[in-house]
Amino acid sequence: MKSCKQFEEVIFDHVDNLVSGEKRKELDQHLGQCPPCQEMFKNAKEVSIRLHNLNRIKTSSDFETVLRTRITMERSLNRGVFINWPMRLPTYAISGVLVILIAFFVASVMKGELLFTNSKKSPGLPSLISNQPIGNNSVIQNSSPAAEAIHFPMDWKTIRGTAINSTEYERNARARLDSAHTSIPKETIVPVEF
């Protein structure tokens, strides 16, 4: 005859309804004669039922929304940091071109500023005008207000952008010069010695 210790495992299987046939008959017989084993079976079964009957809780209503947000955040983060290698080359190329363009733009703006600053000190326009035949190899003295008007007929920026190589401007400048010539007092025109 089997001892209680030998029945222990079968008793626990019986709690899970895993015993059948001859084994079950043998167990029932033993339980009928052994109050301690009967008590052990009863206790284990009772706990199993209690746990099985525990209320089922549910996730909070925003569970899926929170999860989706976390996944979206993670995806966007990964997209930013870990771009696939085939995607990197065009990205780097475009970035490189952009950097070069920006650098070129900045340099040209700075150069323009520099040119503008220098041109005020040694204006190119008077030299342009002075290269023109103005008769009798003479230049106009800066002391006269009329002469100043000829030397700096308009803002440098305007000249630089449109008029410096324009024949039309040269024609206008010459016309202005001629009209100025006539209105300038004789004493302000001095012969130039070469």
Binding site: F12, V15, M40, N43, A44, L51
Partner: peptide, 11 residues
């Protein structure tokens, strides 16, 4: 099984 018996002792 041991867990069940321990629980039962507490309950």
């Amino acid at each position: 099984n041991r867990g069940r018996l321990r629980l039962q002792a507490q309950l």
